Computed example of a mutant assay.
Amino acid sequence: MADTLHLAADPVELTAELVDVPSVSGAEAELADLVERSLRAQTGLEVIRSGNSVLARTNLGLPKRVILAGHLDTVPVNDNLPSRLEDGVLHGLGTCDMKGGDAVMLNLAATVDRPRHDLTFVFYDCEEVEAARNGLGRIERELRSWLDADLAIVCEPSNASVEAGCQGTMRVELRTSGVRAHTARGWMGVNAIHGVGEALRRLESYSARTVDIDGCVYREGLQAVSISGGVAGNVVPDLCVLSVNHRFAPDRTPEQAEAHLREVFAGFELTVTDSAAGALPGLGTEAAQELVRAAGGTPVAKLGWTDVARFAALGMPAVNFGPGDPTLAHTQQENVPVNQIRQCREVLHRFLNED
């Protein structure tokens, strides 16, 4: 492995180099070291390290600032390393989620020589694990001023289209109680698994909202994702737990989403186990509109939760814009078309650099 990356090189080559440095969540140090050395070799950038996150920025005193953010970590290796290039498609762990986006960011750090806005680049760790470990949270706590900007672009895979805002997400558990008994005398007990049947019927008949916000259509969802219960093969179970995931449009707060679920599952014991707010599209600002014009096409809603929500919570508009199909993230077949990597680089270079 080279001591530094040639950041001004073809971003496709950069992507392959990044992919070939394993960086499963919690083990990003080697890749963070490489990114840090490479950014420090650039002139005109202030560079700092926070754990296995690397941050760099210009300080030109320009009227506006744009953040570009991407995580360095991947899900565990699944027999999909090293990278390989076949018929214009780069295959391998992290190609889509999201080292193609990271490569675009690194290339921009080296090639935007006449920036229209001051720029901040945030390469962070532990995005693919529990939220408490996410490097952006640590940066917000310890380096808050580094997250001040007029627009944040999270270079997660979006098929090279501007995806605005994101859904909120919530997981809840429904618990039903019963009375144990021998199955030979089942009438003497109360079956907790049978008791969850009504909740499943409500899920089956549930009609999810479709919400249009600023021309972006968010489709909500409510799905059972796990069920557990049972003691032994000859015992009537006295406890059953049904886990349900709710994806809600960003016009609802987590509190409103919880109230909705309590209405849907009225009569059941319900406990919220995880919750994250969504983010409104935020396309009305001048900086966001400039990006949309540079990208062309029509912005679409982000169906899923991404770290745009963290930036939106800090009071700035945020969008997803990066190479790759998000439906391939976390799969063994993860890949990214090389033309999308180059397209994202060209769009962002046109948006960030003076003509």
Rank of each mutant, 00 (worst) to 15 (best):
G135H: 01
A164S: 11
V104P: 03
G94Y: 00
D113N: 12
E173D: 14
Y218Q: 08
V179W: 04
C166V: 05
N191P: 12
D148Q: 15
G100M: 07
D148A: 13
S161M: 13
T120A: 13
G178H: 07
R138I: 01
E156T: 08
V172S: 01
V190I: 14
V179G: 08
G137S: 10
R180M: 15
D102L: 15
V190M: 02
G94L: 02
T183K: 15
E163Q: 15
M170E: 05
G178S: 10
T111D: 02
R219C: 05
E220T: 05
K99I: 09
N107I: 01
Y206D: 07
L143M: 14
A199C: 09
M170L: 15
V112I: 13
M170A: 09
V162A: 13
G215R: 15
V154E: 06
A199M: 09
L151H: 09
V122K: 07
Q167W: 00
L203I: 15
R185K: 11
A199I: 12
L90I: 03
L90R: 03
W187A: 14
R133V: 00
R219Q: 14
H91G: 01
E127M: 03
E220C: 08
S207N: 14
E127N: 08
E127Y: 00
L203S: 04
S205E: 14
V217H: 06
R201I: 00
E142H: 11
D118V: 01
N134T: 00
L147A: 10
A152N: 05
W146G: 08
D150F: 05
R114Y: 06
G215E: 12
V112W: 08
A103F: 09
V162T: 06
V129Y: 04
A131Q: 10
V112D: 02
C126K: 12
V104Y: 04
G135C: 08
E198F: 08
A103Y: 05
